[in-house]
Design a protein around this nucleic acid. Sequence first.
DNA 1: ATATACATTAACCAATTAGTTAGTTAATGC
DNA 2: GCATTAACTAACTAATTGGTTAATGTATAT
Lengths: 215, 215
Amino acid sequence: MDEIIEIKEEIQPEHKHHSTEKDILEAAKRVFQIKGMYGARMQEIADEAGINKAMLHYYFRSKDKLFDAVFQDAAKNFFSKIRELLNVDKPLLEKIEYFVENYVELLMKNSFIPAFIITEVHQNPDRIKNVFLESGVNIEMQFISDIKTAISLGIIHPVDPKQLIINIIGLCVFPVAAKPIIKTMLSFGDEEYLKFLESRKKEVSKFIINAIKVH
Amino acid sequence: MDEIIEIKEEIQPEHKHHSTEKDILEAAKRVFQIKGMYGARMQEIADEAGINKAMLHYYFRSKDKLFDAVFQDAAKNFFSKIRELLNVDKPLLEKIEYFVENYVELLMKNSFIPAFIITEVHQNPDRIKNVFLESGVNIEMQFISDIKTAISLGIIHPVDPKQLIINIIGLCVFPVAAKPIIKTMLSFGDEEYLKFLESRKKEVSKFIINAIKVH
DNA sequence: ATATACATTAACCAATTAGTTAGTTAATGC
DNA sequence: GCATTAACTAACTAATTGGTTAATGTATAT
């Protein structure tokens, strides 16, 4: 009967243009991240994706749902990366060096994300809640206890761990979030600005460690 | 022909009576700063000001011009305050303490401004240029030479003055710009968040001075 | 009082927008 | 073959938006 098994190998369902949904998401990402929820136009996203506008509503029911998909994805990525970098197994001071170097690098490659997230969370603070709800745990518990330990061992001066975390993140994120302002304020061209960020990979961790280390 | 030159002196000293124009500007400020250029509605601004929508176009010709008036005002205020605080006559380390304390205080009272400026400059980088064009001078020349002097006197370690300025400003601005994110990340209620900012008035300058001072 | 210039309003308009619909095409299953 | 479903499109709609207009009020100076 069925000795001969149809090895039809549906390995690749490979429906024709299976990438439409992904195309939409990536087009939407590009448009939303620059123009924001209200500045973006569904037609522009459709054009960017090279498809009919009705497809946006076919795959995602509304502008808000499409936007939320883009936002959640960007935000989760952004924050899970912070957690990942802060949870490597290193002594505190090395961990800080490691974090700054890699996080600035990541930010340079995704330079729209910080201003995008700040914008949308400022205009609709509720949107951030889902991001942290799903990711579950209270973010930097591990890192906070690293700091407390280092303090009690006399490696660093006493500091409020939460203040320190915000200092570290802020020193990395701010110059990217405020890119056009900094370029204008300091009369930087594109190249100078990039060099400026590049040096921060080392400078910022030196700055932080100087500030907290017991000599 | 033109012997009689019309010296009509359009020195019109302000619109004398009721401050409709100012009412509009303040209502527009409130709405734009929360919802942004594209999220704001002219009708909402009119309602907020308690006047007819046509008056918005009577005093400011278009939404863009009204927005620009609001933005320029906010941004000029914001940046001239930085300059003012950085130009007091104090030794560098005291100046940093003075700046941080007063700037954080100012930011707490105007907590929407940072995210507002970051948003609009991100979405339309050109808008920032006029702000600096009019204010003229290259911002912190004085402060930069303060830093250079302090380095050559051996008061602080060698640092790139521009990096230091961005560090100082970023440490003050970031926690305000990212307010809803930080509140969620660190599980802060309104009160705890305010306390958190309040302690930064002292903590941030200690942090900075520790980082740069030669002991 | 009356002419004049400014201030204000309600009603309207043209353009744009997110979202819908009804129908077409193409692949899959029987 | 034929039916069913998913993927896709062009054209449309209902609502909203920034902006205009024409008429009216109001104060001031002559």
